[in-house]
Design a protein around this nucleic acid. Structure first.
Lengths: 148, 148
DNA sequence: GCCAAAATCACCCGTTTGGGGGATGGTCGG
DNA sequence: CCGACCATCCCCCAAACGGGTGATTTTGGC
């Protein structure tokens, strides 16, 4: 900021000096004051424009362009629906294993329970989800955000 | 910043008024040209500054903001994998219906073919996917982006 | 027009799944 | 302590599913 002001003054001085020491005498003859004033006016108007642009920081309009970015597929279980359906932890666990494509036998092995137990759980899950097949259960479970 | 410009103009006006209305004509008599030039310079500089501000078109800064958006469910089928697996259109269709939780009978009705045909298709799908159960087929199908 | 791939259908047989029922033990809150 | 809830297990039976094999018809490309 300060340097612009100094520059401004300097240029003004130079201009005045130039006017004084060069063609001053010829021009001054007839319309000296008008011409002098005109030149000064023009030069300082230009300077002012320049200064005005320099001194004022540009008016900045911030245009926010929103770019849609795929969310990192963050799975959050809908505990509310779980509650509403009365789904127990064990049942949810079995539903997940069903969704993983395991058979009742495989689920039994993995969960360290008997196949009959798994069948009981799956039956309850189907009841609570209101479905009749495991593929339906998986589909609905994902829709309801019970399982990823 | 704007208030400085206004102050500037105001002071200029006050100065001119002071020069005009008080008895400084004596001084003016001697250094008339310089003072006239100075006044003109000041006024036009002010004008220039004002003009400069007006002329400066607002700069638009584009701020790109990334907004996380729930996955827009943009499903694009992996045709490459379909090709690689030798999956036929009909088989893919049946896989989709399986994923929808339909039984073979329901699929048969919807696709207007016999249940046996559906079974044949599902068998082939299972072969090509290397799975043995429909839940596995659904799971793998989604993983491989064959179905939504 | 022929060939290959795809789609269609059928039958048999074994496995898996799903729908009933019933039973026992554990935990927790009123 | 009792009842509600959960988890566990059992049996039976029917339906659905999956594997194997074979066959016919459609369809698309050369």
């Amino acid at each position: 900021m300060r340097k612009y002001v100094l520059l401004y003054g300097l240029l003004g001085g130079v201009l005045i000096a130039a006017l004084k020491f060069i063609e001053y005498r010829f021009l001054v003859a007839e319309h000296s004051v008008e011409i002098y004033g005109g030149i000064v006016a023009a030069v300082f108007a230009g300077l002012g424009i320049w200064l005005g642009r320099k001194l004022t920081r540009p008016i900045q309009t911030v245009v926010v362009r929103e770019v849609l970015v795929d969310a990192p597929a963050t799975f959050v279980r809908d505990e509310g629906k779980l509650e509403a359906l009365g789904m127990t932890p064990r049942e949810l666990e079995i539903l997940e294993l069903i969704a993983a494509g395991l058979s009742n036998r495989e689920i039994a092995n993995r969960a360290h329970v008997s196949e009959n137990t798994v069948k009981t759980h799956t039956s309850r899950v189907f009841d609570k989800l209101g479905v009749r097949r495991r593929t339906q259960a998986v589909q609905l479970g994902k829709e309801l955000r019970l399982i990823p």
